[in-house]
């Protein structure tokens, strides 16, 4: 019966359903350097991100707790994998590229390291869901900047 939803497979690709159901990084880091919360007041989604830096200031680990939809959880999880080992500046550039991809569905600025985010490009067909995908990134960038709270509005 579920095949009747074929037309949403662009949004809910298998990798998204998988990371939405079984996120690998969905935990608070006991040992962290920075944390920030993200909040989408229009829909009630909430996420908190914790970051640990390496001595060279690149991101050693990212953990998160999310109360939100499959898209936001999967996006947070894929983000945590993608930014590992990246510098702050790299991560911010990635976010800009990712945000563009979420809005337009294409990403000329995306490098090979961002390939695992590509399944999220389907959100561009669902304008009301773009913020679900970008909310964890807003929280991560706030953590990198030392801001405590942010919003995807």
């Amino acid at each position: 019966m579920a095949e009747a939803f074929d037309d949403v497979r662009d949004l809910y690709q298998e990798v998204i359903l998988d990371h939405g159901r079984h996120p690998r990084h969905a935990q608070r880091l006991e040992d962290f350097d920075s944390t920030a919360k993200g909040d989408n007041p229009m829909c009630g989604d909430r996420v908190q991100v914790w970051v640990k830096f390496s001595p060279d200031t690149t991101i050693a680990a990212t953990g998160f707790e999310a109360r939100g939809c499959a898209i936001s959880v999967a996006s947070a999880d894929l983000m945590a994998e993608t930014v590992q080992g990246r510098s702050k500046a790299d991560t911010k550039a990635m976010f800009e590229a990712f945000r563009e991809m979420a809005r337009t569905g294409v990403c000329p600025a995306c490098d090979a390291a961002m390939e695992r985010l590509a399944p999220l490009s389907g959100v561009h067909e669902y304008p009301s869901r773009v913020k679900c995908a970008t909310l964890p990134w807003h929280a991560l960038i706030a953590a990198l900047d030392g801001t405590k709270e942010t919003s995807s509005e």
Binding site: A4, F5, V8, M42, G44, I71, C132
Partner: peptide, 19 residues
């Protein structure tokens, strides 16, 4: 999640509110 429910329902022409 309610938003995922609403999106799938919408694809079937069913409008509900979620949030």
């Amino acid at each position: 999640h309610a938003h995922d429910v609403a999106t799938l329902l919408d694809r079937q022409g069913i409008a509900v509110r979620a949030g």
